[in-house]
Amino acid sequence: MLQKYYEGTSRIIELSTEIGRLIGIVDSNYLQKPTTKLRRDNKIKTIYSSLAIEGNTLSVDQVSDMIDNKRVTGPPKDIIEVKNAIEVYDHLREFDPLDEASYLRAHQMLMKGLIDGAGNYRTKSVGIFKGSAVAHMAPPAWNVDNLMKNLFRYLNEEDDTLIIKSCVFHYEMEFVHPFMDGNGRMGRLWQTLLLMKYNPVFEYLPIEGQIKENQQNYYDALAKSDKAGICTAFVEYMLEQIFFSLEDLIETQRRSLTNTERIEHFIEFSGKDSFTRKDYMTVFKDISTATATRDLKYGTENGYFKRSGKDRTSEYQIIKK
């Protein structure tokens, strides 16, 4: 290992195993892309929670209105923060979580109009205060670039799972505090991107909401890791939040998918341009032949597929939209 960022503990092993089990349930129940309404609700909750942790005063309803391009009144800084966050989360898939230049580009987008030098590492010393006491003194500015390059080297070269790496990066980035402002929201954003690279479902999980509901525990885990000089406590804490978020998703979505949801899932995740009914049923193993036939008929009639051939020899071409 390039640097020993954390200690493997029985709790980390246990949580990693349980998260793997829940990811298996997500995959087998076609939940990688939840329903449109749930995705929208989770996006609102994610943006609201991540900014509220940093002191943004806008409500969930105001964030929702801004996503719908409705006019909202509030402190100008808070309005800009939400607008920037919406833009970032609208372009999540355009960022490469293993690339430092992409990371700096995300910060520029997230903090534009809020600080000078958005998208650049700090050139001054910074400390985090609780009242008049220094809670954390970040490494000197001259060492930030080196520390961040080491952290991206860890992401790219080490054998830890992306789930573990996402937790380590989140903590270590907060410790380095590479920017004059926006470090907290960047830590949470980049963890989401690393998790998305592991499994698409994490684009739609409001882990930030889970953190906000346990905000003091979040700060306690950061402080405990600071004191220990190693981020084991924070990795354990974040794995718990990931576990709870997955549990919530599975509980919310524990129902049969509609025909439209099955069709849209197949189009996005099958990797096929043309296919047969047998191919369709290979993805959806728990549906009957009659249900598959009805799905394909509906998909053909509603512009998802173009059918050729008859009966069991039919082939379907996916219509690109």
Results as ranks from 00 to 15, higher is better:
Ser274Asn: 07
Tyr154Gln: 04
Asp68Glu: 15
Glu158Trp: 03
Glu208Thr: 14
Ser125Glu: 06
Ser102Trp: 03
Asp159Met: 11
Ile79Ala: 03
Arg11Tyr: 08
His107Phe: 12
Tyr198Glu: 15
Thr289Met: 05
Val88Phe: 10
Gly209Arg: 02
His107Glu: 00
Leu205Phe: 02
Asp181Pro: 03
Thr161Tyr: 14
Val201Gly: 08
Tyr218Ser: 09
Ala290Asp: 09
Thr192Asn: 10
Asp27Pro: 02
Asn120Ala: 06
Gly131Ser: 07
Gly113Phe: 00
Glu315Ile: 11
Val60Tyr: 12
Gln32Trp: 11
Met186Ile: 08
Asp311Pro: 00
Leu162Arg: 15
Leu193Val: 06
Phe169Glu: 07
Gln108Pro: 00
Leu31Met: 15
Thr35Ile: 09
Leu104Lys: 11
Asn84Glu: 02
Arg153His: 05
Lys285Met: 06
Gln216Val: 13
Thr36Asp: 15
Glu54Met: 01
Phe175His: 15
Ser308Tyr: 02
Val88Glu: 11
Leu189Asn: 04
Arg188Pro: 07
Arg40Asp: 11
Pro140His: 09
Val60Met: 08
Asp99Lys: 14
Ser59Thr: 15
Leu194Thr: 01
Asn183Leu: 07
Pro139Asn: 07
Leu162Pro: 10
Leu249Asn: 15
Phe202Asn: 01
Thr35Met: 14
Thr313Leu: 13
Thr73Asp: 05
Ile25Cys: 02
Glu87Gly: 09
